[in-house]
């Protein structure tokens, strides 16, 4: 399969901050790469280098085999960029914004208008086409923003956190939209902090943290990599909570810590595999004389993957300082 995006040992520092510390990526044509990482991981930096906005300190980056540093114009001819913040001209109408980009891609004025109309329809903006963007909602702006990066039918589309700041309904709409684009064969690099988003949209996920890719694979592979499942048992009586925890702790398939929640009367543990867990739990707790209200086994989420890989949750940016030395251990600096 031909490769649309390729980076090798990509590096970039801002002062003493090593934003990218040797990143290797490979995106086959007509697939979606999800760059998943918390705040400050280096996602935007990687996108900015790939879209010729930023010069790397070292390493190579190729789009359709073209080096982004050596021939930026040829690269710009092939890419579409939707940055982290909607880049639209608020003083113009939606249609004017699109036509403007079209003309900068050297479409004739009729051609630019036709393409604009086409995209406005595709992105459900026809009604708002002749309204000044200043009055658009966040979701509408974001849709227009993405439409603007598609004017030239790019070979590779970069979407930097396309759903950050959108309400849940707009977010689902955006997912449908992106899935449609991808179905049409647009190679896409998508950055996100949302695990469910990467899981739904990406063929391959690269988990990036502090400038280093710490894991990669499909969502299923990443889950298999940490293995296990989450087992939650709810007791019938609050008095049984300790007995329940002890009994569960003695099970051979249980790994990791035991979490007790007196309010829901439940105990949660991680088990090596979901298979055969429920009968074993029922038997063990039965012989321990604990009455059960509910047993629930769930596969790991990507959040679990992240937690396992970095020792902190994605939703926990305040922790970042505590593990600042971690990437240096994982990968020595040059």
């Amino acid at each position: 399969m031909p490769v649309a995006v390729e980076t090798h040992d990509l590096r970039k520092a801002f002062g003493s901050t090593q934003a990218l510390n040797g990143v290797d990526l490979e995106v086959p044509r007509a697939t979606v790469l999800g760059l998943l990482g918390p705040n400050g991981a280096g996602k935007t930096t990687a996108v900015r280098i790939l879209t010729t906005l930023l010069q790397p300190d070292g390493g190579t980056a190729l789009i359709d085999g073209i080096n982004v540093v050596e021939d930026p114009r040829a690269v710009r001819q092939r890419i579409g960029l939707t940055g982290q913040y909607a880049a639209v001209d608020e003083r113009l109408t939606g249609s004017e914004n699109l036509q403007h980009i079209g003309r900068l891609f050297r479409l004739g004025s009729t051609e630019a208008r036709l393409r604009a109309d086409e995209l406005l329809a595709q992105f459900d903006l026809t009604e708002a086409a002749d309204r000044v963007v200043k009055g658009y909602s966040g979701g509408m702006r974001r849709r227009l923003d993405i439409a603007m990066s598609l004017i030239s039918r790019p070979s590779v589309l970069f979407l930097d956190e396309p759903t950050t700041g959108l309400d849940p309904r707009s977010r689902l709409g955006m997912w449908d939209l992106i899935e449609g684009l991808v179905r049409d064969g647009t190679t896409t690099v998508l950055t996100t902090q949302y695990l469910d988003e990467a899981e739904r949209l990406a063929d391959q996920i690269a988990v990036i943290d502090q400038g280093v890719v710490i894991a990669r694979g499909t969502a299923a592979e990443l889950k298999a990599q940490i293995g296990g499942a989450r087992l939650t048992v709810t007791g019938a009586s609050p008095a049984d909570l300790d007995a329940m925890a002890t009994a569960l702790g003695s099970l051979p398939m249980v790994i990791g810590a035991t979490e007790m929640d007196p309010i829901t009367r439940s105990v949660t543990v991680t088990v090596t595999s979901a298979e055969g867990v429920v009968p074993a739990v029922v038997r063990t707790l039965d012989s321990a004389g604990v009455e059960i209200a509910d047993v629930d086994v769930a596969g790991p989420t990507l959040d679990d993957v992240f937690l396992q890989l970095t020792g902190r949750s994605t939703a926990d940016p305040d922790d970042a300082d505590g593990v600042a030395a971690a990437p240096a251990k994982r990968k020595g600096r040059k």
Binding site: R29, T31, Q77, R106, S152, P154, S155, R183, D184, G185
Partner: peptide
């Protein structure tokens, strides 16, 4: 999820323009 058989060819076949006219137009 997105295994389309028909991959899209890059649209960049047109030669990149140069010259004064191009500068003025943009």
């Amino acid at each position: 999820m997105t295994a389309t058989t028909e991959t899209m060819e890059p649209a960049a076949a047109a030669p990149l323009p140069t010259g004064v006219l191009w500068i003025w137009r943009d």
